[in-house]
Amino acid sequence: MKRLLALAVSLTALLILIGCEGEVTLETPSVTYTVTDNGATLRLSWIEISDADGYYIYADGVAIDTIDDPSVTTYDATQPAAIYEVSAYAGEDESDKATVDCTPVKTSNLTVYGLSDPDTTHPSGLAFTNDGVAYGISVKQANYPDLDYIFDDANFTTMTLTSPNSYSPVYNDKKDMALDAQVTSFDTVTIADAPGNYSTQTTLSSNAVYYLFMDQDDDGWDTDSDHFGKMKVESISGSTVTITVAYQPITGLRWLVTK
């Protein structure tokens, strides 16, 4: 009888111990980022998550790397993607994912007009809102500060994308440049070229894609105010130009993954 009682007590104690073991709840990493390597790399950082065994890194929903040391809290992302995610894991458990959105803002089929177009209501300039949406803007004094690019077929024999600071006197001090990407597919371009070969005057052709480098303060690449983008010239008909543009809102980052 005593043995039976002892067994029952032991079993009960065991069940209580097992049942009372706390479930590990992993915090979601709070991820910040900096742009490095002339805009090619996004360095992700977070604070160490207690109880974690490590971290998973995802690019556009696909797990691309595992950090198996919980004290390592930075990751240099070099694979261009629209969305990066970081989660903590402990054994089979995984936290929610922290998201860094690197999606460029896309504006499709925007119509602008070369400077030679006599209709003053037809915009010959290109500008971007604070959110990165591209829009056509008339080249008139009130708009000079907002101009990012000018479609000039008045001072050039063919349609040319020019920088506002490429004139005398300048429209504004921005040094906004472009470079032929040598491809025709907009989505093929996932990262813009590093600065060096961009020009303040770029001849445009139909069905061609161009990298955009907006060196807003004309001091070379930095993460203060510079932005990258890509632009496809869908068509050029006389002075009428139809374009599709993508603008990377993260300053200094050259990634341009669109789908």
């Binding site: 010959s124 001072n155 006197p169 440049m177 020009s199 480098f213």
Partner: peptide, 24 residues
């Protein structure tokens, strides 16, 4: 063949002259 060079400044909406291109 591609650049075609600049042509003499013509009256335009901009009314400005073009500086030589810069790289960056």
């Amino acid at each position: 063949h591609k650049r075609g060079g600049t042509k003499a400044p013509a009256p335009s909406k901009g009314g400005r002259t073009v500086k030589p291109p810069e790289k960056g």
